[in-house]
Design a protein around this nucleic acid. Structure first.
Length: 487
DNA sequence: ATGTAC
């Protein structure tokens, strides 16, 4: 293995260009994409290589089962039970624990057509509107059972097509007004779908509407950004991404509801001697619901990202002077993709991505390559890239900068230092950090510390690595104007 | 990673 380690156990970066071929007894092709500027942990690499033991273990069940390839993205970092930044291609079986905790979690980007210079004088007003719509109850959504089922079955298009009761109000108005049109998230084909309504018991029905439109915790966020620079002018122009324009980025997942689907997938899997994770043979009788569970979670997560983006759109409309942003102005989604998911190739192969995002090569549907969103840490730039479909990366890219400090270590940041960070940023949270009770404020501050810039690696070297390795071409740099974080 | 607000 051409990776060298420091005395501290950090993997030093290969001195040659990516990728590094990783050797393993299974003989399965495995490649690490890294660069001198981005150290990775030895333990993360060890845990990733251990995934290849799935190959021999699966073959004890059925010789047709196999692991076909492993790819590790530039933000690889340690997590349980498998590192973040992993793409694994299998044949004949899935391993549901290799999705990440939040099934369907991903990124979405909308264009507003608004000039950042026009918005800047109104950021205080926008902050107030966003706090109201995200955290102060102006977000009531009351869907019918049929609408909820439609969202799970077919995503936003089916939700919009479902019968709408006369006089239905609330957040639903946003969706109706904005006519999002064809969504970029079309790659999800329907599963068998027969069992979808079984997921919606009385308790789930009740919590569905309150969950939809919530940001989620941890590193999830919604951000109003300015296109700071077009790095690839042709792709940026083709995508309608103009320097100085306001865009809306969403990072969120399938919420509490998605845990039902994840849990169900995991109950179908079984432990196999020698396998680092439980296996789910795809043709096992009695498991017709694998695609149902996967796609329902993906539709829910993507639908939630749309709802969150529409909430920002509505706040923008109210914060700006009349006429500056009207309901009929387009609000197109440029991209929506999960980075915790299992894709069925339809030919018996399954592509697992845990904290890795699809980055397909230019094709008929996306002539410049698939749009790829890589967010920086709180306060940092995010990047829009164009996928290059690198075969050894399994068409994948990083999903973020990657955590540098474990959560515990990040908590050691002092309150004063965190406050200095927050003073330079506009961060909207459910509570007013100045006015809140001391114990509530302490909890909020510790949550924010875990997401503070120092807890993450710098994003720029990650982006450079993608460019040099041929994973994805940088198209635009996006500067945060205002960030919404739920604690 | 997981309702919201305190």
């Amino acid at each position: 293995m051409n990776v060298h380690f420091s005395a501290q156990g950090e993997a030093l970066s290969p001195t040659h260009l990516s990728p590094t071929t990783l050797a393993h007894a299974s003989g399965v092709p495995a490649h690490l994409f890294a660069s001198p500027e981005v150290p990775i942990e030895r333990s993360a690499l060890r845990d990733a290589l251990r995934l290849l033991d799935l190959h021999a273990a699966a073959r004890t069940l059925d010789p047709a089962l196999r692991v076909e390839a492993l790819a590790l993205t530039p933000d690889l970092h340690r997590a349980s039970p498998a590192p973040v930044g992993t793409a694994l291609l299998t044949r004949g079986f899935l391993t549901p624990h290799l999705i990440g905790n939040d099934l369907g979690c991903g990124m979405r980007l909308h264009l507003t057509g608004l000039r950042a210079d026009d918005l800047r004088p109104h950021l205080d007003a926008l902050e107030r509107e966003l706090r109201a719509v995200f955290f102060q109850g102006r977000r009531s959504l009351s869907l019918t059972g049929r609408q909820r089922e439609a969202l799970l079955r077919g995503g936003v298009p089916e939700l919009l097509a479902a019968p709408r009761p006369a006089g239905q109000r609330g957040l639903w108005d946003l969706l109706g007004a904005q006519e999002p049109g064809p969504d970029p998230q079309v790659p999800f084909v329907h599963g068998q779908l027969d069992g979808v309504q079984d997921w919606l018991g009385a308790r789930e029905q009740a919590s569905f509407d309150t969950q939809l439109g919530s940001v989620g915790g941890g590193n999830h966020f919604v951000e109003v950004q300015e296109v700071a620079a077009a790095l690839d002018r042709h792709a940026a122009y083709a995508w309608g991404v103009r320097p100085g324009e306001v865009v809306v980025m969403v990072h969120s997942g399938s919420l509490g509801f998605g845990h039902l689907f994840r849990a169900q997938l995991r109950t179908w899997a079984r432990a196999v001697p020698g396998a680092p994770l439980p296996l789910l043979p795809a043709d096992r009788p009695g498991v017709p619901g694998v695609l149902d569970a996967l796609h329902a979670a993906a539709h829910l997560a993507s639908g939630n990202r749309l709802v969150l983006a529409c909430m920002v759109r509505s706040a923008l409309g109210r914060a700006l002077p009349p006429g500056m942003l009207t309901d009929d102005q387009p609000f197109p989604a440029l991209s929506d993709a999960p980075h915790n998911f299992i894709w069925s190739a339809g030919d018996g192969r399954w592509l697992h991505r845990k904290g890795a995002t699809p980055a397909a090569a230019p094709g008929a549907q996306a002539p410049h390559g698939e749009p790829v969103l890589i967010p920086g840490s709180m306060g940092d730039f995010s990047y829009l890239l164009a996928g290059q479909g690198h075969p050894l990366a399994l068409g994948s890219a990083s999903h973020g900068a990657g955590r540098r400090q474990p959560r515990g270590a990040a908590m050691r940041l002092s309150d004063a230092d965190l406050r200095r960070v927050l003073e330079t940023l506009r961060v909207v949270t459910p509570i007013d950090l100045r006015a809140a009770r001391a114990d509530i404020r302490a909890r909020a501050l510790s949550a924010l510390k875990q997401e503070a810039p120092g807890a993450y690696k710098a994003v720029t070297p990650i982006i450079d690595t993608h460019a040099r390795a041929g994973l994805a071409r940088p198209v635009a740099a996006l500067r945060p104007l205002l960030t919404i974080k739920s604690l």
